[in-house]
Amino acid sequence: MKIVVCLKQVPHSDARLDINGDGTWIQEDNLKFEINSYDTYALEEALRIKDAGEAEVVVVSIGPDRVTQALRTALGMGADRAVHVNDSAVEGSDALGIAKVLAAIVKAESPDLVVTGLMSDDGNFSAVPPMIAELCDMPSATSVLKVDGANGSLTVERELEGGAMEVVELPKPCLLAVQTGLNQVRYASLKGIMAAKKKPIDVKTAADLGVGDQVGAGAAKVRMEKVYQPPKGEGAELLEGSTDDVVGSLMNKVKELGLL
C-alpha cells in the first residue's frame, strides 16, 4: 500500500503577521513556519495506517528551501520519503495551479490513498484537495473525522454542519481531506529525526512534472488583488461611572435599540 500525504508549510500560528510592501501577501522574511495544522492530522492518519500494516508514506510539498524543514519533520515522524517541488515558477499559482502540480505527483506515484488536510491555516480556501481528486479522476471525501478499513474500500465519517455526521464508502484509490482532531498527532522522536537524515527528499520543478506551463501567476485564474487589515470598527461606546450607573445606561441602550 502506498499513501501520498500533501502538506503545506504555513506561518507559525503565533507569528506576528505584517502585510508586505505591495499589499498582496504577508511579509515572510524572518517569519517562523510550521506544518499546516490540518496536514499534521493527515500525516498522522497515514502513519497510523502504516503502523497497522504495510504501507509506504510519501510526503509532498511545494515551496522554497525553508520547506525542507517541514519535510524533514514529517520524515522524522515516520514518513518514508519526500517529494519537494522547489520552483520559483510555481509562485503566484492559484489553487488550481497548486492542485495541478500535486496531481502530477499523485499520478506519477499512483498511490492507493491520498491524504491531505481539509484546508490550510493561511489561505483557508479548502479548494486544493477536491481539485487534486478531480484531476486524478479519483473519488474524494472532505472534512473526514474517522477512517476505517484502510485495506479494503474505505468507510469514512464526515463532519457536517450542526454537528451531524455522514458515513460514506469510497473505493481505492481515493483522496481524503481530513478535519483536525481525528487523531492525536505524534511528535517527531529524536531517533526518528536521526533516521530522517538518511531518507530521500526528491527535489523537482514544475517542468519536471510536465506542468511548467500551467502554473505561476501567468496561468492563475484567481489573482490575489489585495491583503489588508480590516479597518477598526466605529461606533463603540465606552460606558463609565459606578457599576449602578453603567448597568443603568446599558439597560437604557438596550431598550433604545429595541433589543429587549
Binding site: H12, R72, I193, A196
Partner: peptide, 29 residues
C-alpha cells in the same frame, strides 16, 4: 503565545537541521 526561543545573534545558523528539529520537537512536547 507559544515560546519561540531566544536567538539574538542568529545562532541557529550554527546548528544543523537535525539539531534544530530535535529542539523544535521537544519544545512542542
Amino acid at each position: 503565545a507559544d515560546f519561540q526561543g531566544v536567538d539574538f545573534l542568529r545562532l541557529d545558523e550554527l546548528l544543523s537541521e537535525e539539531e534544530k528539529l530535535a529542539r523544535e520537537s521537544v519544545r512542542e512536547f
